[in-house]
Design a binder for these strands. Structure first.
Lengths: 225, 225
DNA sequence: TTTTTTCTTTAAGGTTGATTAAAGGTTTTG
DNA sequence: CAAAACCTTTAATCAACCTTAAAGAAAAAA
């Protein structure tokens, strides 16, 4: 289950992300409205947590835009105390719920569960697809052509990143930032090692998906003919 | 037999829970209407004890909502003295009974038995199944392949959690939250210990069910070939 | 109540397996 | 060709996890 947090208070955003990851949700966080919109439009999220007060573009505008694009992802608005009128506007524009800051973890989790339940009675599972492979980001199993193989966490996170970014080229810096965190001192070689591991497993699966290197730029998934 | 208590007076809720557990009911308690709704909708309970005055969402509204969802779980309302009109409304909306605070333990237990009897003549039993094992959450006996072994409470709760979550991976945090409560300071090692105990007992039963570790993620039940 | 038993938690050391670092090879680019 | 970027494998390190024993707490029995 993938959740996108759009919240400009970095601290809160990271705290939320951490809490949700412990519940085994896949979480991405962005810190301004424009990035929120870009990410939300990808349609890969099962739920959006949207702060109302945001730089670049406020949460309500963001909500309006994604609804106009036909995206029905459940949205929970995060509101400060005084923003009652915003709440109402939010619900009018298709938010599923709102929760006033400060809120308890428990309450947030309950509302998330409720929103997810409300939406798709049959909860979509966590399988990501690309070409002939399917990655389950919860139990870390990668399958294709009848075969199946277990990944370890870092492999899964890396492949997940490549799969969600589809045909975009992903740089080593982006990978490091996503897998090891913003200011980590991890070497490029480290990424190369995991790319190598993944290629081996893709080969084992006899998948037609491969990880192509674009020198000086990054990696991208491709389907071979 | 699983009972959900929705009662905002923490003290009363816990006291009730304790009394009912002594009667071998499986009891969960939540302290506001929204959480009550979330939990009740899961449909796993055999009875709901519902306070009328609640934060977030009052008991009557809660009752209405679950009945609208087609959930027929018996409901006993807990009412304060003055709330006669609420009682009536409650019965209109499909409560099975009400009991006025303060009430005696005996009276409550009698009404619970009556409500359960009234509902399903054949009472659903408390056996959970997965693969070749069966867990009775009331007498804490785990059986499979003809053999049977007694679990202790924490083992049973842990296995119950894994069994109800079926093929989902459950993190240690989720386990701690469920077994020890939200903000407890219990160490991860504690979970590991009980996982270890359970594995030993599964081995003793020669069950094909095993608890698989997914490093950095959590635990999941699997059936071996 | 005191004693005994059972259950729960803590602590410690061992084991496994993930991660990192390193080294040598290969491919691409200028 | 030389330099840079990348690939792959292996070995060392480190973190996560497992297991056992025993202390502590709670419940049951005497």
């Amino acid at each position: 289950m993938r959740i996108l947090i759009v919240e400009d208070e970095l601290h809160l955003a990271e705290a939320l992300a951490q809490i949700l990851r412990k519940q085994n949700y896949s979480v991405d966080a962005v810190y301004d409205g424009q990035s929120g919109l870009d990410n939300a439009l990808s349609g890969i999220y099962d739920l959006l947590l949207l702060d109302i007060m945001l730089p670049e573009m406020d949460g309500i505008t963001l909500l309006k835009k994604i609804r106009n694009e036909g995206i029905t992802t459940p949205v929970i608005l995060l509101t400060a105390k005084g923003e009652i009128s915003d709440k109402v506007a939010g619900l009018d524009y298709g938010a599923d719920d709102y929760i006033a800051k400060p809120f308890s973890t428990e309450e947030l989790l309950a509302r998330i569960r409720a929103a997810l339940r409300r939406k798709g009675e049959i909860l979509p599972d966590d399988a990501l697809k690309f070409g002939d492979i399917e990655l389950n980001t919860v139990n870390l199993k990668l399958s294709g052509k009848g075969k199946e193989i277990k990944l370890i966490l870092k492999e899964s996170e890396l492949l997940e990143l490549l799969m969600t970014r589809k045909h975009a080229v992903t740089s080593k810096e982006q990978i490091i930032e996503k897998l090891w965190g913003f200011d980590s001192e991890v070497e490029h070689n480290n990424v190369e090692v995991y790319i190598s591991f993944l290629r081996k497993k893709l080969t084992f699966l006899q998948s037609s998906v491969r990880i192509t290197t674009i020198r000086g730029v990054g990696y991208v998934l491709e389907v071979t003919a």
